[in-house]
Design a protein around this nucleic acid. Structure first.
Lengths: 253, 253
DNA sequence: AAGTGGTCTAGACCACCAG
DNA sequence: TGGTGGTCTAGACCACTTT
């Protein structure tokens, strides 16, 4: 092959070659087939196996190193890294479990349930093409103490990658929350969250039964499983009714 | 040059070429010479300017994109991204470093600096006997963008265990923030934080120059080193000016 | 000496976007 | 149509580590 031919003539796949190799390695690591410390194929071995140039194999391994999956040592080899021991400030926990653990009763109402086409903004958040199919749900979670009236404690505005969890909308979210269903379907291996304080909109005020002056916490979260962003959620908490808490060891100690 | 000669024969530099380009771009971004939205040189322009191959220029720009410095659009060009004012929920960052990394200028004013005797509440937080000596400082951190006025971005209300960091009050906190000094003195091996949304008090409004209706984030943090609670801090951020961010792998995966 | 990863080149093809 | 970024190749030289 004398020219720099790009897309493989043998496989008309949308995914670039270096991502093929990344997926191949990730699958072995995540399935446990290659445990921590296991030596992964060298660049030259991947060149032979995948019929790619060394630059392509190198890029795949380098990115997995940057993502914390692999450790590389010049002159030695590439190895599967120990999983991070660090715990999260905010683990993904099922709010229904939190409430029942406090001895109170959880309930929720489904305000919206729809299949949508990704807007630009959502496509960026999911790292997908614009126009991809997504599921969208809006729920209000309530907590009831003793015989009092149930109080809204969380507004859940969630989008789900339809390709990854295709049966998501088949549930009614009454017996299990979206969080519980998603955790049962896939194990997230990466989480991102951004916390801000916001003034509730009219819609927030109505659904959460808060006054306009009461500040709310907005927790924006993305969860990955392998290559894919599985779900993007915006969780709004009335500040007077919830706080976020975490305790952990810092990263580099 | 017919062969793939690597390190430039003309410059025996330790830094690889793609990092040269990264530094070049970063310096322009952080100095403000290339403001957000500014178009950065295309790959082909960098090829000419730096006398490198396109792969090398591409790698530099791609990594800066992954690091959140640049945004790239196929068919259009590469642009400087809007810096985000946010801090980490996972480790302890020096706010002065965060601000300078965005290309802005940090300043702070010391509002209070005192030695106090622990109240019941503080003694509990530090897990010490009531009456123990503590240091107490209050600072306002400000950020200045370009030639604008410095804007308050954080109110730091901090208590320090006097036994653990006995020379803490000898600093003026102008050249180094309390965070920087504490990190230099001791390595925290455990962190706890609690995040809430609050309505600013009159004092908050005055020091942070916010209106009463603007919600604020309150980040309450305790840091341990060995057996001792080293410091307890309440960090207040105007919600419109800062958010908290974390991205990590969950613990139990 | 052989193998590893780190870097680099000088080409190439492609999808995309603007004028 | 020409410029942009995205990907890929088939070589290369180097520092490093293990045998």
């Amino acid at each position: 092959m004398s020219l720099g031919t790009t897309s493989p003539a043998t496989a008309p796949l949308a995914r670039p070659l270096y991502r093929h190799i990344k997926v191949f390695v990730r699958e072995h690591v995540e399935s446990g087939a290659w445990p921590p410390g296991h030596r992964v194929p060298s660049e030259n071995e991947l060149v032979s196996q995948f019929n790619v140039s060394r630059m392509t194999a190198h890029r795949a391994l380098r990115e997995l190193q940057q993502e914390g999956v692999l450790a590389r040592r010049p002159g030695v080899g590439t190895f599967v890294r120990e999983p991070s021991r660090r715990t999260s400030l905010i683990d993904i926990r099922n709010i229904a479990d939190e409430i029942t653990a406090r001895g109170n009763r959880h309930s929720c109402s489904v305000e919206l349930k729809a299949t949508i086409i990704a807007t630009d903004q959502l496509a960026t958040a999911f790292d997908l093409d614009r126009g991809t199919e997504l599921f969208h749900v809006v729920l209000v979670h309530r907590e009831r103490t003793g015989h009092d009236k149930a109080v809204p404690v969380q507004l859940e505005n969630r989008y789900v990658n339809a390709k990854v969890v295709s049966d998501f909308l088949e549930h009614d979210f009454k017996s299990s929350t979206p969080t519980a269903l998603l955790l049962a379907a896939i194990q997230p291996d990466e989480i991102e969250h951004t916390v801000t304080a916001i003034r509730p909109t009219k819609e927030h005020q109505r659904l959460l039964e808060v006054k306009s002056g009461e500040p709310c916490l907005s927790l924006h979260r993305r969860s990955w499983s392998g290559e894919h962003v599985v779900t993007v959620a915006e969780l709004i908490y009335p500040a007077s009714r919830y706080s976020l808490h975490g305790r952990h060891r810092p990263a580099n100690v």
